[in-house]
């Protein structure tokens, strides 16, 4: 346990990268703070590494349910007014976002 805490499970670079991926702007002091705090969380979870999981099927879900489906039937949608209600900016028809420079759509 103590070992894993000493090993500093989280590097500064990782914190910077994760912040960038999450679009968070952190000050150097905040970065230091997260290296420590997030590192502790990770270190705590690393306790699980002590468990021998050889020959155990990986679990992808915490509940045992399988095959939950719904029928392909149309239900009422929100009105456009309601759909746009929480948006920071709209033109009454579409959501408005700052100009997207690289064009195209996402990679879906």
């Amino acid at each position: 346990m103590a070992d894993s805490l000493d090993r500093q499970p989280l590097s500064r670079e990782t914190v910077v990268k994760v912040a960038r991926l999450a679009r968070l702007k952190l000050t150097p002091a905040e970065i230091d703070d997260y290296v420590g705090k997030l590192g502790q969380v990770l270190g705590y979870v690393e306790m699980l590494d002590e468990v021998d999981v050889t020959d155990i099927e990986p679990m992808v879900h915490a509940i045992e349910l399988r095959n939950v489906f719904r029928a392909d039937e149309v239900l009422p949608s929100l009105s456009r007014t309601d759909a746009l209600k929480n948006a920071p900016k709209t033109d009454g028809v579409c959501f408005l976002v700052p100009q997207i420079l690289d064009g195209g759509g996402s990679s879906a």
């Binding site: 033109d91 028809v93 579409c94 959501f95 408005l96 976002v97 700052p98 100009q99 997207i100 064009g103």
Partner: peptide, 12 residues
């Protein structure tokens, strides 16, 4: 995307 070249917002 706004194609006017005036840098207006993109609509979604």
């Amino acid at each position: 995307h706004d194609e006017s070249g005036r840098g207006l917002d993109s609509r979604v």
